[in-house]
Design a protein around this nucleic acid. Sequence first.
RNA 1: GCGCGGAUGGUGGAAUUUGGUAGACACGAGAGACUUAAAAUCUCUUGGCCUCACGGUCGUGCGGGUUCAAGUCCCGCUCUGCGCACCA
Length: 809
Amino acid sequence: MKRYNPSEIEPKWQAVWEDKHVNDVVIDTNKQKLYIAGMFPYPSAAGMHTGHAFSYSIVDAIARFHRQHGRNVLNPMGWDTFGLPAENYAIKTGTAPAVITAENIANFKKQFKRMGVSIDWSREINTSDPEYYRWTQWVFTKLFERGLAYQKESLQWWCPVDKTVLANEQVEGGHCWRCGTLVEKKSMQQWFFKITDYADALLDEIPDLDWPQKIKTAQTNWIGKSLGAEVEFKVDGRDDVITVFTTRPDTLFGATFVVLAPEHALARELAVGDYAERVNEYVKTAVKKSEIERMNDTKEKTGVFTGSYAINPANGAKMPIWIADYVLIGYGAGAIMAVPAHDERDFAFAEKFDLPVVEVIDKPETGDERVYSGEGNLVNSGVFDGQSTSDAREEIVAWLEQEGTGRAKTSYKMRDWLISRQRYWGAPIPIIHCPEHGAVAVPEDQLPVVLPEVKDFAPKGDGKSALASVDEWVNTTCPTCGGPAKRETDTMDGYACSSWYLLRYADPANSQQAWDPKIANYWAPVDYYVGGDHAVAHLLYVRFWTHVFNDMGLTEFKEPVKKLVYHGYINAEDGTKMSKSKGNVIDPLDVIDQGYGADALRTYLLFMGPVELDAAWDSRGIAGVYRFLNRIWVLAQEYQDSAKDFTNNDAAVRRAQHKAVRKVTDDINRLSFNTAISTLMEYTNELYKLKVDGFSSGVWLEALQVMMQLIAPFAPHLSEELNNQLGVNELVQNLPWPVWDDSLIVEQTMTVIVQVNGKLRAKLDVARDITEADVKALALANDHVASFIGNKKPTKVIYVPGRLVSIVV
RNA sequence: GCGCGGAUGGUGGAAUUUGGUAGACACGAGAGACUUAAAAUCUCUUGGCCUCACGGUCGUGCGGGUUCAAGUCCCGCUCUGCGCACCA
């Protein structure tokens, strides 16, 4: 008998698949298309980790399952190669990022093949390939044309170690996401994408997305839409007007002071007399402090009075104007009307600085909190007294609009997407600065703007990338007037590159356009997108760009991803995150090499638990899965070596088979891989029990071939090898997925349970077509059941067909 | 603080759709078979308590409720993971 040896059969079938290009696909309108993609990896020097292995095991199980259903399955792969690790390595060693990137890609690709992932390698893309970023730049110029890419001087997060600007989501708890350094604020000219123009469009589609609720909620919160009003407050004795944003215009009569953010344009101007110096001082320190530091300052309110007053348009009250850093310049109007009676923060501030508190909502009796922020009826609100807060919100806004001192207004927490990076290793922003014409987009026929070769990759710390020191590259001519001009030296955020790659996969070799809309519309949108990271950033940006492409007529759809499969993390055996420093990292390739093979690794990763849950690696767990695969192997060998002359177990074998087909099909369809695999274990265990009665040629052969079909999404090499050993010359993925026949699963008898007062008292084996009257009689006649009824008379006897008889006494 | 999840044996988890036999499957543990021995493999047992056994009884984080019947539905808590966090 041959032994199960993954290190022999896995390379063998990987070579067959590769030689025959079995996963390369072209448009075929006779087949149903299915586009699946895992989030493409950053090819790090460390190679694949277990998280990658898990992610792509999910992708491959789904891809193979659908391929076996005869669908035209697109499963591409590419490389997200721009980024800091390669650049930092270059700075340290002088090796060009492109060189080390190529090595890492080669390693990753080899690892993907050793995992047996069924990828169409003819579509491989690489974001740092000029043929790819040419079109990333092209998209930039289109956004620029449409006013969706613009420059703005702004205070930005700045990492003093990486010497680059960081986006909000690259700052984690006040520290750089890459190097952990405390970030600072710096004012610079930056490029932005105007994602805020699409806030409503992006928000509107969220309910219809077949995505996990937590991701949808995270995106909704990130966009942070609030309905409210703008209210204008005249400054007493001056021409200035302060505009504030509030979600509670109903509390206008309770506004007792106004607070401006330190960065507010009027902050210093309104400081009068003796107050000027203190305001100046406060503003200076507040601006210098990072927002994070402000937050960590235990939320203790700080602020200074300007000496100026505003007039409440509702009641003419004089309201002192304060400057405080709890008001953020980036949200709303950068100024608020403070209603201390009904807002916690305003109350804390009023308490600290002894400012007046005026209640304008009649609190419910039960409310004993000092600050009531709920609903109720208005008091102290002039003509609006007695109105409910919800009515008053509309009425007061209407009144303000009539008076010309306010209007309904919607605010968003989301800010525009900062894409400038002062780094070398990114796609150059395709802009030329002309003294005459300002910022001019590089024309399409001059793309790509290729990254020049340099020797020193380090930014100089002057806020510019290493590109700025390549004079012959920087100095160019203006596309509009031909006069001397300079290239933009910032590169794009890597998220720009990954915001359209799913479309490029559809048409990866197109040298005339980013993609042919006809081809993209056949494959995309993505049916399944698999990943376990980027809840907001990438998944929001890719939606944003696709909405824009739809507006440009480049796609027929707005949303790039139909179903998002968001999986958990694989942790170390102790349940903590794997990390090099703790030395608890499991290398998936090591696991394969130890002799378990890729099939056991993949099957184990999917067997650990539901895909969306985090799981802890267990070295004994993978041994168990290996045992299971080995049992399938041994069974197939025993079948082949046997005389095949007994047939008395055929019906049972057939029933086990059809039951397994039904359950595995259902389970994979709902992405419940762990239960699909457990079903296959049960099926195997059942066949082991049945084999003691001997094998028959027809039914057993089919049962085993079906086993190979069902296990193929998880353990494709074992499946292919045994399928072949069982005499089938066709590859498993070209065979139809097995179907089940319910009539073969149904047994002649069924088990009906009997409950007395809700407690299980007996199990009855009855004929499937038994009548309700018969089964009830049988239940009542059962001795054990009768002993619990005693001489009482049942008040109720309920029969749930096929399940139970419930007797109430 | 706000939002979204989760809590089931010694462990990971199952009980999908529509409330209907809680603990599938696997790991671990225990026993046995094979072996000079070990490994591997195979078979059996394995939620707690009571019982020789048949069986009984308790049991899905806690407290209530609805129902013939609740892990599942409702109300109120506790703990925990994650996301956002002075967003007016």
